[in-house]
Simulated scan of single mutants.
Amino acid sequence: MRELELPCARESVGQAREFVRTCWTDLLPNAPRGKANDAELAVSEMVTIALSHQPTEMCVRVAAIESSRCRIVVADNGRTSASPPALGRGSAGIGMVVVAALGTVGHELTSRGTTLWVDLTFPGPTPGIL
Rank of each mutant, 00 (worst) to 15 (best):
M1R: 08
E3N: 05
P7Y: 00
P7R: 03
E11F: 01
S12C: 02
G14V: 01
Q15R: 12
Q15W: 09
E18F: 09
F19I: 00
V20G: 00
T22H: 11
C23G: 08
N30M: 14
R33G: 11
A36T: 13
A36L: 14
N37E: 14
A39E: 02
A39L: 01
E40M: 15
A42I: 07
V43Y: 08
V43D: 10
M46L: 02
M46Y: 06
V47T: 07
A50D: 04
A50Q: 04
S52I: 09
T56D: 03
T56I: 11
V60T: 08
V62Y: 06
A63F: 13
A63R: 13
I65L: 15
C70M: 13
V73R: 07
V74D: 04
G78S: 03
S83C: 09
P84T: 05
P85A: 13
G88L: 12
R89P: 03
G90I: 01
G93M: 02
G93K: 05
V97C: 11
V98W: 07
V98E: 00
V99E: 02
A100F: 03
A101D: 14
T104H: 11
G106N: 10
H107T: 07
E108F: 06
E108R: 12
T110Q: 02
T110G: 04
G113F: 03
G113Q: 00
G113Y: 00
T114W: 01
T114C: 12
W117R: 04
V118Y: 06
V118F: 08
L120G: 05
F122E: 05
P123D: 15
P123Q: 14
G124F: 14
P125M: 12
T126Q: 13
P127T: 10
G128H: 02
G128N: 01
G128I: 09
I129Q: 09
L130V: 12
